[in-house]
Design a protein around this nucleic acid. Sequence first.
DNA 1: GGCCCGGAGTCATCTGATGACTTTTCTCTG
DNA 2: CAGAGAAAAGTCATCAGATGACTCCGGGCC
Lengths: 243, 243
Amino acid sequence: MSAVDKAFHGLRHMIATGRLGAGQRIPPEGELCEELGVSRGSLREAVRMLAALGVIEPRHGSGTYVSPLRPEDVIGSLSLTLELLPLTGLLEVYEIRRVLEAHVAAQAAARCTPEEVGTLFALIEAMEATDDPTKASELDHRFHSEIARIGGNPTLASLLSVFRARSRKYQVFTLPEGPELRRKSDEDHRVLATAIADHDPVAAAGAAQAHVAQTERWLRAFMPPVEEDSVEADSVREDGNAS
Amino acid sequence: MSAVDKAFHGLRHMIATGRLGAGQRIPPEGELCEELGVSRGSLREAVRMLAALGVIEPRHGSGTYVSPLRPEDVIGSLSLTLELLPLTGLLEVYEIRRVLEAHVAAQAAARCTPEEVGTLFALIEAMEATDDPTKASELDHRFHSEIARIGGNPTLASLLSVFRARSRKYQVFTLPEGPELRRKSDEDHRVLATAIADHDPVAAAGAAQAHVAQTERWLRAFMPPVEEDSVEADSVREDGNAS
DNA sequence: GGCCCGGAGTCATCTGATGACTTTTCTCTG
DNA sequence: CAGAGAAAAGTCATCAGATGACTCCGGGCC
């Protein structure tokens, strides 16, 4: 077992066994190095691994703390890498979204309060009122997140949030067909929110599934290019190396 | 932005834009340090982060390679941390499992071939034939993984595999009530496999959901203690502290 | 009492050196 | 010429030391 692995599993074991509890500050680097028998460099690499996985959180100048270990802390680490998956993976994610969004919609229909229904319709109206595609996409995300929250399962809500973030990279609303798509999307939202307000889980599940499926079809049809940062001209194409 | 963040996002950007493709070897540490403007230590921490997330894989003496970027590569990183979640998180995971297992069962019922049905029943018979709880748990995992595979969505299959691994930590079959639970579990498996063999998605979904719900009830009822010392490489034998 | 400042504690980063492992290349032998 | 073995190059793994940056707290000053 390598030194970094030793430090990684040692730290993970301390957390799993409760010796280091959620939110607690872990011992300083020096002490951990001595206890785990590795150098500071190796320990720091292990700490970075756990930080990337959302388990611990170093704070410059203060110390390193165990995360609250809530589901979103751990699942959120997926958002950094999910968008690296190829396109076939994205379509598979949509199938999962269909199923889970339908489930949370049904749960929300069974559990929602009048205040929560009001929030949903307020988001819909804000969505219909804006012309900014970016803002509309943001509100769309909040609308679905609110439904997931009402569903009552934070783990599921954070998982869906990650999946939606991956989909949002492709901004269908900025296409020439965007306004038309948005109008249909708004209709879907009203159908979904109405079903939830009526406490009709079956209708809500159906509406949610249809909505996701519609988005997926649009994506398949148009497949806009994704641009995530500055567009660097591929001047560096050193494909002809010595191999 | 810190040096490690600079290296992390720089590497991630190279992969996202395709400059570093799946399976490809990335430049050696020295070159990347110069290009990204960070020291070797910082670069190595960034590499470790991406490795923890399943995106790249360093090979001692050979180089560092981009992973195949298959869904299981990225989702598998969750398995290292999901078991750190508190118990409430586990129960939420069970709700997700209920929904997704039902879905893959329905998909499998719609898509399965006679050969795949044969595999399922062979696994059931092997499960019923063994007395070893550990082996039974292993076969149970393979049975459900096979159904998920037949379902046709590798991303979903790997996600469910991670969720099941979390549940398997609690070995209900080793309890005093284990044999009784196993008998009922075997019945569930036969019902599920029969529904799949009959190409009856509705029955398959219902059977899968009921099976997961049953397991969840057992876990709530007995809640056996978790023992996680699966790694026997006790190179650190100085753990005999005051804990 | 409130504000400013300095010191202790901690993480962040860099540099240099050495060891371990893999892959390639070359030489020697048959 | 072919093959096996050794040598060499390339790369990651690990350690040690030093310095900088940041946070937090407490004491001194107004």
